[in-house]
Design a protein around this nucleic acid. Structure first.
Length: 480
RNA sequence: GGCCCGAUGGCGGAGUGGCUACGCACCGGACUGCAAAUCCGUUUACGCCGGUUCGAUUCCGGCUCGGGCCUCCA
């Protein structure tokens, strides 16, 4: 083993790059804030999980044993009949007599399907919030006396009882006008709910008895409880969207400090991915401004093209989504898959990459070790793939090692799997093949007028004929 | 109103105090009956105004524009 560069990660706590130093030697324990499953996740949400997965894969690439936990927030604020939201699925579910539990199960399944499409590795543990409510109540009991106070609406956390509140957010904890309506009796504006009592006369579909009355846990509580239960305190890395840096995570930190009676924030490194911006007009029309993985697939794009979109950018940069950009990433993925397929036709992956590829692996690792610079890592992978006069087996071994970190599935993905039937397609595959057979005959007879007419016919049906491609034809891509 | 962040070629997006990634598109070439696909090659940039410096896209200040958070949004 050669000496390798240490992994450096950007810690939101210090706003600096820091070397990764695990709490438990050789092991990396990571907690990722998961979705609230009351609606579909859009592609922006999915960026967070591609990021968390890339982090996990990088840790494994660096030789750490990974223990990753992602939570599913299946308890929230859904009251019995109000607050149905404007999500069609939710309405439909409500109309068909489904419960909040059914809705949560439905959207959890949808979410996990999208993760599978994106080759996001299953975490060691999915923590489901409702399964931890008793633990949350115990947790709340343990901090109630010293850190909390009770109001009519619930149990609140006093943020002045822990050191350095809001350090992560770099924001003033108090002062300011604030547009938010104050909750009657709160001691400080930043104080937050640990337990929310069900208002008198109302009932929730999801509610539990507690020392502070019947109700539901505060959102921030669950992540502290589940992370400490599954990973122990302190653990290594906590990930989430950048929006969580301001409120959710500072509150989580406050709870951790209260519970552990320590100034430690609970996780050594807090990492936040930036947002995906969607401003394309056409796109915004669908589903009230959100685009989901399903929409990409419906338009004929392979889900991994979206992973490619994410990987091309740094996780801390805002990323602009457009169909044109998705198309570009898809073409890039396709060419890479074809290159690898060519290599696989020639050789089996070697046991080791060999000396010729070593510098590329080094550069690849250096890029990832530099706060997950996947954009550069990707170009190194492509350079290695394009190397001339190199043993195919060794090259495959190198590409396999790199792809284990990037997760593009390059060694198993086949060209034909990238041909996704668009939802709007009107012609059947068998019909296409039949026309192509006719065209082949016409070409053999040098009847190019007929052959071109058949090609035009297919083009009109959204099918592109490609004589030089092993597949022979592909769908023309549309926009969502 | 408060706090935070960003501005790179046609699009997306890395990165750096001087040697200007990468992908897609474009253009040229190979291949093809012609295309397409594929392969090879090439062109185009660092928001505006000052400052520091031998030299700034990169550092500092101001401006303009854009974005985020302050409500259980990744």
């Amino acid at each position: 083993m050669t000496e390798t560069v240490p992994l450096k990660l950007f810690n939101s706590l210090t706003r600096q790059l820091e070397p990764f130093q695990p709490v438990h030697p050789g092991e990396a324990r990571v907690y990722s804030c998961g979705p609230t499953v009351y609606s579909y996740q859009h592609i922006g949400n999915m960026r967070a999980y591609v990021f968390a997965d890339t982090l996990g894969r990088t840790l494994k690439f660096k030789g750490y044993a990974l223990r990753h936990v992602i939570n599913i927030t299946d308890v929230g604020h859904l009251t019995s009949d109000a607050d149905a939201g404007d999500d069609k699925m939710e309405k439909a579910a409500a109309q068909s007599g489904k419960t909040a539990w059914d809705i949560a199960a439905f959207f959890t399944a949808e979410f996990k399907r999208d993760l599978g499409w994106l080759k996001v590795t299953d975490p060691a543990k999915w923590t489901v919030a409702t399964e931890y409510v008793p633990a949350m109540i115990d947790y709340a009991k343990s901090i109630a006396d010293k850190h909390c106070y009770e109001l009519d609406s619930g149990l609140y956390f006093d943020v002045t009882t822990v050191p350095d509140y809001g350090r992560l957010a770099r924001a003033a904890t108090d002062e300011g006008e604030g547009r938010i309506e104050q909750i009657e009796g709160k001691r400080h504006q930043a104080d937050f709910a640990i337990w929310r009592k069900t208002p008198p006369g109302e009932s929730r579909q999801m509610e539990w008895d507690s020392p502070w009355g019947r109700g539901a846990p505060g959102w921030h509580l669950e992540c502290s409880v589940m992370s400490s239960a599954e990973l122990g305190m302190p653990f290594d890395i906590h990930t989430g969207g950048i929006d969580h840096r301001e409120i959710h995570h500072p509150n989580e930190i406050a709870q951790n400090q209260a519970h552990e009676c320590s100034a430690h924030t609970g996780a050594t490194i807090w990492m936040h991915n930036n947002f995906l911006k969607i401003r394309d007009g056409k796109m915004s029309k669908s589903e009230g401004g959100t685009v989901r993985m399903q929409h990409l697939v419906d338009a004929g794009f392979h889900p991994l093209a979206y992973r490619m979109v994410c990987l091309q950018a740094h996780y801390r940069s805002e990323l602009e989504f457009s169909w044109e950009g998705l198309q570009a990433a898809f073409v890039r993925l396709k060419r890479l898959v074809m290159t690898v397929s060519g290599l696989r036709a020639q050789a089996e992956p070697a046991d080791a990459p060999g000396a010729r590829l070593a510098p590329y692996l080094e550069r690849f690792e250096a890029a990832l070790s530099d706060d997950l610079n996947t954009a550069v890592a990707l170009t190194v992978l492509e350079e290695a793939a394009a190397l001339k006069k190199t043993d195919s087996g060794e090259k495959l071994a190198a590409l396999a090692a790199m792809d284990r970190a990037l997760g593009l599935d390059l060694l198993t993905l086949r060209r034909e799997e990238l041909r996704i039937r668009p939802k709007a397609a009107t012609i059947a595959e068998a019909e296409i093949e039949a026309i192509l057979t006719q065209r082949k005959e016409a070409r053999a007879a040098k009847d190019f007028a007929t052959s071109d007419a058949l090609r035009d016919e297919l083009a009109a049906a959204g099918v592109e004929v490609m004589d030089g491609d092993p597949l022979g034809w592909d769908w023309k891509l549309g926009e969502g």
